[in-house]
Write a protein that binds this DNA or RNA. Structure first.
Lengths: 236, 236
DNA sequence: GCTCTCGATACTGTATACAATAAAATCGAC
DNA sequence: GTCGATTTTATTGTATACAGTATCGAGAGC
């Protein structure tokens, strides 16, 4: 899993899949902070790096804009969204309401297979953290929360959680200190325990503390911006 | 308000605003069921009706697809989404969780000005209902719920409610009987009363009953599809 | 030396043209 | 007469070319 999906490899998949791959490469790069908030994303440059025309790039940028990972300024183009403190508060309040509210349903539907899958995800996350890949760990943590929401069986809410987790990753990447990661090492394992025991109310309370702890760990200090080298980041 | 924004008037607004107008015309047409679920939306036809090139239309269709008002099938093009019963359940469960959870915050921030604005919206809704414009009333009802969510001060959750209300309108347009509208005549006024009195808990309970009542009023019978005449619908 | 204006440049916004593919219709065979 | 294969057509996917606009730099005036 080392440096992950680094280079898109210029594989000539047909249509659909190619765009999806570019989308994922971009969103991962943003979430893992290889593309830092404020970085401009020029259509020409991206088109060249990924070997597609600007048409396809624009489609992807628009999607990322709707998910609020990039900001689309009318005649200035796209740039990686720089989340504000207010937005951060809204996002974590929303997660508090939705994710906690989902826990009873998740507990009800949690089976052996699901629990095993979640434990595996938690394990991968710890491993990334141990090997110093903090930003990768942040993304894996988000994946965990999303998978959890999907287990509730409500697709609409799961999608919202997915959006909120993406934004959270961006927020964590910007405002989280190095060394003090948002999700404590064993929180996720403890949570799985409560859910597997069918104790929805306890899981709900635990999730609430868990999210509060993440939010409390943020330090609201902004970093400076710099010009990104797309070729280096994507290895194109 | 009669036949509303029927023809886009071919006004040559510059760029931004033009697309926004087309987007609104389309989403309103879908929500008010002038474009029925399953109706195909051909890019050429839309481009001609709205006097823009396919490029702009595609952008708008993609946005509508993300909001799940239209369904984008890979090489088949766009069609108005036909919500399933499962989706309807998810949407109303999600509204139950989010909108009810928001009521305490809304009650806390509700002032005289906000209450007056909401009462005016409720009045317009009743008026549309009285004059037999059921689908317009459905849209106005959605606007009311969205405005309410915005008053909570949480932009992220307000956006989610907006999405859920759009989908609800589509669901109501499809599954609601004629004559028995989702939102009862005075429910919204009663709700404003509780909120203005600062009684968040009571408002929360009332909203819960309100949403349950809407969902219970649905009859899960599907209608047949037919080919739409875009020129007639948009008056182009 | 500073600021304001004018020009060049770089980038996005939009349309159009071309290629690819899936649905439909027609023709032929059984 | 019906089923199947092939051609035709309709519609989306993609790239490219052109136009418009904002930004940056240079030069002149104060």
């Amino acid at each position: 899993m080392s440096d992950a999906q680094g280079a898109p490899k210029l594989v000539k998949k047909k249509g659909e899949a190619r765009h999806e791959a570019i989308y994922k490469a971009l969103s991962d790069a943003i979430i893992e902070q290889r593309l830092k908030p404020g970085a401009r994303l020029r259509e020409d440059a991206l088109a060249e790096v990924f070997n597609v025309s600007r048409t396809g790039i624009r489609k992807i940028l628009q999607r990322l804009a709707i998910e609020q990972l990039v900001t689309l300024t009318p005649r200035r183009g796209a740039s990686v969204t720089r989340p504000t403190a207010d937005e951060a508060k809204d996002v974590f309040d929303a997660r508090q309401l939705i994710e906690c509210g989902l826990m009873p349903d998740v507990a009800r539907r949690m089976g052996k297979k699901e629990a095993a899958e979640l434990r595996d995800m938690a394990r991968q996350e710890r491993q990334a953290l141990r090997s110093g890949q903090q930003s990768v760990a942040i993304r894996l943590s988000a994946d965990f929360h999303v998978r959890l929401a999907q287990l509730s069986g409500n697709a609409a809410l799961a999608e919202f959680v997915e959006r909120l987790c993406s934004r959270s990753s961006l927020i964590l990447a910007v405002y989280g200190h190095r060394g003090h990661l948002g999700c404590e090492s064993h929180d996720h394992d403890d949570l799985i325990g409560y859910l597997e025991a069918g104790n929805g109310e306890r899981a709900k309370a635990f999730m609430s503390r868990h999210l509060k702890a993440i939010e409390a760990s943020l330090s609201m200090v902004e970093e400076e911006e710099n010009v990104p080298d797309l070729r280096q980041i994507f290895g194109g």
